[in-house]
């Protein structure tokens, strides 16, 4: 049941020129492409003060993907300089701190400048995601969903079968609360709502206009998926809750912030 499919069949007209991604786009890569069929894939990494973690993250990503864009959200700890040291990584720097949602939107605007970009991955900078999961999710884009439409959105989930969420019990409780709340308000039967690992096709990304600077952008993405009737599925992913990411932003307080953002965001 890890792959629940969206209801895109109802809105066939929205899936404009849905070429099944991947197979159609096999132009030879002029850049340092690693796998030829991944030359149309961009990985967007929003980063704010992740100097301690982003190095290994970019090592892992650049080993798999040729096109990685880091959006440095005005970090004060040299995160951007670390990212700039990777020659294949494109660095976009916010002049002021705008929040993770804004960083993602900047990354989307940036990769859409590349006319060859067909598939986009969002990937957290704190080391909790695995590049192998991102690759598997990218490869699922364009494959038929349970309803037969080519998948346009793959959402990483910590709670499906095959996923591991090595989180504490209290945090899991809050996360599940956020999931229940989002399921009820967005009316999309997802099992995880605040997972930063996603794969989307270009047409999905082109329709995203994230207004929430903070964490509630995750909900905005789900709302767009439902409103546009994109074909979606979840993909079980492994989350590495290192001591670092534990200490960083993944505290209970952050979960409370997510819940508050959600509640306020709904009324805006």
């Amino acid at each position: 049941m890890g792959a629940e499919s969206g209801r895109s069949a109802a809105r066939e007209g929205n899936d404009r020129n849905d070429t099944p991604d991947g197979s159609a786009d096999s132009l030879p890569a002029a850049g340092p492409s690693l796998a030829e069929d991944l030359d149309d894939v961009w990985v967007v990494v929003p980063a704010y003060n992740e100097a301690a973690a982003i190095g290994p993250v970019l090592e892992g990503l650049t080993a798999v993907f040729a096109h990685v864009a880091v959006v440095d959200d005005a970090s004060s700890d040299g995160t951007g300089d670390i990212a700039a040291a990777y020659p294949t990584v494109r660095l976009v720097r916010h002049p002021i701190n705008l929040g993770q949602g804004a960083a993602l939107q900047t990354g989307f605007d940036y990769v859409l400048r590349d006319p060859a970009a067909r598939r986009v991955v969002t990937f957290d900078a704190d080391g909790q995601h695995r590049a192998a999961d991102a690759l598997a999710m990218v490869r699922r884009l364009g494959t038929p969903s349970d309803l037969g439409a080519p998948l346009q959105v793959i959402l990483g989930t910590r709670f499906g079968p095959g996923a591991t969420a090595g989180a504490g019990r209290a945090r899991l409780g809050v996360l599940r609360l956020a999931v229940a709340y989002t399921r009820a308000t967005v009316r999309l039967p997802v099992t995880d709502t605040h997972n930063g690992l996603r794969a989307m096709t270009r047409e999905v990304v082109a329709q995203l206009r994230l207004r929430q600077g903070g964490m509630a952008h995750a909900t905005e993405i789900l709302e767009r998926v439902r409103a546009s009737g994109f074909a979606w599925a979840e993909h079980p992913v492994t989350i590495d809750y290192s001591a670092y990411s534990q200490a960083k932003g993944q505290s209970m307080l952050n979960a409370i912030n997510i819940l508050t953002d959600l509640a306020i965001g709904r009324s805006r």
Binding site: A30, G31, W42, H67, A69, V71, R90, L91, V92, R93, H94, P95, I96, L98, A102, Q105, T106, D109, Y110, V111, R113, D114, A116, A117, G213
Partner: peptide, 17 residues
């Protein structure tokens, strides 16, 4: 402010390819 900052960020960014 967000739109403006984004414009600045994108204007200063290298081309994607």
């Amino acid at each position: 402010l967000t739109d403006l900052a984004r414009c600045v960020a994108l204007a200063e960014a290298p081309p994607p390819r």
